[in-house]
């Protein structure tokens, strides 16, 4: 579903942040991108999403070259959902209004059906539909932004550090929700994460980046089981 080939990208006239990264992610697969700060994780996701144009290399989705297709067109025409790391809800809008924003382009009946299904799936949102998003906790906002991306039934979901700023309890709730989406809806999910152990606990495969290149590409369970890899790239201790 996603095929990134030899990506090079950077900001403005600055040096390359991505130095030839290749990545694939398929249907019903949760792929996580890990690595230390500044290694290019978020830049890679932004390049795949279309916030940033690659300087060379390319990105294919559903077999089509979408390297230069901007994010708003991917969302509207290529069934892509994107959840940013921070500022991921409109705080002045209610939970219901935020959720309906994701249903742009859907007819009223489909929107209502999907809305009801998501309310059932995420009771934490159902009880706060009329509240302003600014009144939600960090974890609830993450769930809301996930649900908003899901209302349009995307086939590809791109998540930028969904656990950022969450308490350990909410962190598990958010990761369970993400794994649930993969299992129940057969989506292709690419997730950038700092919490490596938790991410590997739910992911199928992982790419560990270092200095803008893929240092390790392996099944998530292999990475979790390998003490040397943990020491080198994942913080050095067992969870």
């Amino acid at each position: 579903m996603i095929e990134a080939q030899d990506l090079r990208a950077g900001y403005g006239d600055g040096a390359d942040i991505l130095n030839g990264i290749s990545l694939t992610a398929g249907r019903k697969e949760l792929v996580t991108i890990l690595g230390p700060n500044g290694c290019g994780k978020s830049t890679l996701l932004k390049t795949i999403a279309g916030y940033l144009k690659p300087r060379s290399g390319g990105v294919k989705m559903h077999g089509k070259d979408v390297s230069t297709v901007p994010i708003h067109e991917k969302v509207r025409h290529h069934r892509v959902g994107y959840v940013p790391q921070t500022d991921n809800v409109f705080r002045s809008l209610t939970v219901a209004e935020n959720l309906r924003l994701g249903a742009r382009g859907l007819d009223r009946a489909t929107t209502a059906r999907r809305y009801d299904a998501l309310m059932e799936q995420y009771p934490v949102l159902a009880s706060k539909q009329g509240r302003k998003a600014s009144a939600l906790s960090g974890g609830e906002r993450q769930i809301l932004s996930l649900a908003r991306a899901l209302i349009a039934e995307p086939e590809i979901l791109l998540l930028d550090e969904p656990s950022a700023g969450l308490s350990p309890l909410m962190l598990h709730e958010v990761f369970d929700a993400i794994a649930g989406i993969r299992d129940s809806q057969g989506m292709c999910i690419v997730m950038v994460e700092q919490n490596a152990f938790e991410a590997l606990g739910v992911a199928d495969r992982a790419y560990v980046l270092s200095l803008g290149q893929v240092a390790i590409h392996a099944p998530a369970r292999d990475l979790l089981a390998d003490p040397a890899m943990r020491a080198l790239y994942l913080g050095g201790h067992v969870a």
């Binding site: 999403a49 708003h72 969302v75 959840v83 409109f90 908003r148």
Partner: peptide, 24 residues
Amino acid sequence: SNFGLGMKLIREEPQLARALGYDI
């Protein structure tokens, strides 16, 4: 209009508006 909603979303969170399919 729906266009007006896009205007307000750009005012609030332009990058998030793009992620919702708005061509800012």
